[in-house]
Design a protein around this nucleic acid. Structure first.
Lengths: 182, 182
DNA sequence: CCCGGACGGAACCGATCGGTTCCATCCGGG
DNA sequence: CCCGGATGGAACCGATCGGTTCCGTCCGGG
C-alpha cells in the first residue's frame, strides 16, 4: 500500500483500467478505490489522460524488465519469453496487454495515448532485436518483428481462450522460425 | 445509401464504431450521421448494445465471406488469405478488426458483446480448420489455431505500423509452418 | 381519398462524465 | 509549538451519456 496520493492513484489506475478498460472507468471510481480526494487527483495529474500515461510508463518498465529477466534466466534463449507468457496466461483473469488495449481504445494514431502505447511496442521489438542479434542471426530485425507479432497474437488469443494454450502455440511457431536457417 | 432507418443506423455504426471506437461514439453522433430520429433508433434497437450486436453480425458475415473468397480464388491455398490481408492493410486508415476491438472494449468475458466477438473468432478458426483439413494435414486443428494467432498478431501489428508489412510477415511465418511436415 | 405505419424533431429524464473551487484537517520539520 | 505543504470531503460546473415520451409529418396501399 503506497502512502502517497500519487502512488495510490497510479496503483488504482493499473488495477481498474486493466480490469475494466480506460474509458469504462471514471474519475469517481479511481478516487473511491484509491481513497484520494478529487482535488489531490488534479494536483498530481492535469487530466485523466495524464494518469493513463503514468500507468503506461509503469507498465512499459515492468513488462520489459520482466521479459528481459525471463530471457536472461533461460541463458539468453528468446523463446523462453513464451514460457513466461504461458505462466502469466495461466493466472486468474487475463485481460490482455495494457498497451494493446490503450492502442485500441484510443485508436486515433495522433492521440498521445495511442502514441505512447505504440512507443512501448517499439521498445519491446528493440529489446527482441538485441536478443536475437546476440544469437548471431543475420535476420534478427525480421525475426524481432515476427516475435512481436507472435506475442501480440498470443495475447489476443489468450483474452478469448483463457489459459496458457496460445503462449505454447506461439512458442512452437517461434521455435520453428529459429530452426530454419536464414 | 440505404433508405430504411435501420439500415442507415447499422451503416453509421459500422463507420463510426470502426473509426473511433464503440464507447467513444454516443447515440447523438449515430443519429446525426445516419439522419435517423432518436425515437426511430429505439424503435429498431432496444439499446445501443443491440446496435453494436447488429454491426458485429454484419462484420462476421462479410469478413468470413471475404476470407473464403480469397482462399478459394487462390485454389484453396489458405496462405492466400494473408495476401488479401496485405491488400486491406494497404488502404487508408486501418483501425484493426471490429471483433478484436469489441472484445477489448468490453473485456468482461461475460458481457454479451464480448461473447459475440469471441464467437466470431471461433467461427473464423472453424473456417480455417476446414480449409487446412482439405489440404490433407493431420494437424489441421493446431494449424488453424496457429493461423488465427498469426492473423490477429498481424492485425494488431498493422494498427501500429500501418501498411501491408505485418501481413507479409505473417504469410512468411504461415508458409514456414506449412513447409514443416507434421 | 383516407387510414395507418414508419419516420424525424425536440423536449425531457436521471445519471455520470471530466474538471474546478473552497475549506477543514492532518502531520512533520524548524 | 507552530507553520506550511499535502491531503480528503464536498459542493458545484457545463457537457454528455443512454433512454423515454409526445407530436407532427410523410407516404403508400386499400
Amino acid at each position: 500500500m503506497p502512502t502517497h496520493a500519487r502512488d495510490r492513484l497510479v496503483a488504482a489506475a493499473e488495477q481498474l483500467f486493466y480490469e475494466e478498460g480506460i474509458r469504462a472507468v471514471g474519475v469517481e471510481r479511481l478516487l473511491s478505490v484509491s481513497g484520494v480526494g478529487r482535488a489531490s487527483f488534479y494536483r498530481h495529474f492535469p487530466s485523466k489522460d495524464d494518469l493513463v500515461l503514468a500507468m503506461l510508463r509503469g507498465y512499459d518498465e515492468r513488462f520489459r524488465e520482466w521479459l528481459a529477466h525471463a530471457v536472461e534466466e533461460a541463458g539468453d534463449d528468446p523463446t523462453a519469453l513464451f514460457d513466461a507468457l504461458a505462466e502469466r496466461f495461466g493466472t486468474s483473469a487475463l485481460r490482455g496487454c495494457a498497451a494493446i488495449r490503450t492502442m485500441i481504445e484510443f485508436v486515433d494514431p495522433d492521440h498521445p495515448l495511442h502514441r505512447a502505447a505504440v512507443a512501448h511496442k517499439e521498445a519491446v521489438v528493440a529489446d527482441l532485436d538485441r536478443w536475437l542479434a546476440g544469437l548471431g542471426r543475420a535476420d534478427h530485425a525480421e525475426l524481432a518483428a515476427q516475435f512481436l507479432l507472435l506475442i501480440d497474437g498470443a495475447i489476443v488469443s489468450a483474452v478469448r481462450e483463457r489459459g496458457p494454450g496460445p503462449a505454447h502455440r506461439a512458442k512452437r511457431i517461434a521455435a520453428a522460425l529459429l530452426a530454419t536457417r536464414p
